[in-house]
Structures are given as C-alpha cells and as structure tokens.
C-alpha cells in the first residue's frame, strides 16, 4: 500500500484496515487420515478477504498429537490416490443420479474454504 495514502473519510480508513497477513517460514501441511506431510513454502502474503481463521499453535499440545509425520512425497501420493478415489465415487454417484432423472451439479457443500 502507498505509504503516503491520505484517508479522506472514516469509511475509507475502515476499508483499508483488513485482515491481511504476511507469513514467514511458511509450511503447507497436508493431512490424510492420521498422517501429515509438510512442504516448505517460504513467505506468504495473504489478502484479508481470503482469511478464515488465524490460530496460535500450542507447542505442548502439538507434542501430544497422535498424528504421525510422513515424507511429503508419500503424502502427495496418498493425497493423489484419495482424490482419484473421490473422483471415481462422484462419477459413479452422478451417473446413478442421472439415470434416475436427477440433475447433477458440481456443488461440493462445505468445502468452499
């Protein structure tokens, strides 16, 4: 943002204060079942409108976690298989619904975020 920006009204001030985030040493963590894998990503700038939640990790709690870390390559492989299985399931379901005269759209409820 331009550091010389001048706020004219209180509304424009409010509009420019948002939940924008800058993350350093970011990792992307992929979960499948009780396993997870980390991918190093570096610095992230996240525009406020995309933020759902910002949480602080309790390191003690994290140590007690029953989850196990596996290498990323393995994780991506598992994730790919899961996704393919889901696509197959959806195809089958849509085909069955279609045969019974239902119109099928691709709305994935609850997975927008």
């Amino acid at each position: 943002m331009d550091s010389f920006q001048i706020f004219t009204t209180s509304t424009s001030l409010v509009d420019s204060v948002d939940t924008n985030l800058v993350l350093q040493d970011t990792i992307e963590r992929i979960y499948v079942g009780d396993a997870y894998g980390d991918i190093p990503r570096g610095i992230f700038i996240i525009r406020g409108e995309n933020v759902v939640l910002l949480g602080e990790i309790d390191l003690d709690k994290e140590d007690e976690s029953p989850l196990r870390e596996v290498p990323v390559e393995e994780m991506l492989q598992i994730q790919r298989e899961e996704m393919e299985a889901k696509v197959r399931r959806d195809k089958l379901r849509n085909k069955l619904l279609h045969e019974h005269g239902f119109s099928v759209d691709n709305a994935d409820f609850g997975e927008q975020y």
Partner: peptide, 14 residues
C-alpha cells in the same frame, strides 16, 4: 486434525 494443537484464535467476522 489441523486444529488439534491450536489453543487460541482470531476468526474473521465475514
């Protein structure tokens, strides 16, 4: 599972 170790959080109003 990604929320298991989180102790406090900020939630965007929208």
């Amino acid at each position: 599972p990604h929320m298991m170790a989180v102790k406090n959080c900020f939630i965007r109003g929208s």
